[in-house]
């Protein structure tokens, strides 16, 4: 799952960049850069990094 979260994070950041520079036009209604799409995908990327962080953190010690 750690690998998946990191892979998804990278994929979302790549999508964000592609929307930002206007290369990606999927589910858009006009040509050109789509900053709103980019921000949302960057947000998803950050959430995946947080997911990665939760899996990487050391578990609390049982006393």
């Amino acid at each position: 799952m750690k690998g998946l979260s990191l892979l998804l994070a990278i994929a979302f950041f790549v999508l964000a960049v592609l929307y930002w520079i206007g290369t990606l036009q999927i589910a858009t209604h006009d040509p050109g850069p789509h900053h709103k799409h980019a921000v949302v995908f960057a947000g998803l990327g950050i959430l995946c990094l947080i997911w990665f962080r939760f899996q990487s953190a050391a578990p609390s010690r049982v006393r």
């Binding site: 947080i50 939760f54 953190a57 050391a58």
Partner: peptide, 9 residues
């Protein structure tokens, strides 16, 4: 929210 991220759990 931020504390939970820093803590990682």
């Amino acid at each position: 929210f931020l504390e939970s991220i820093v803590r990682g759990r």
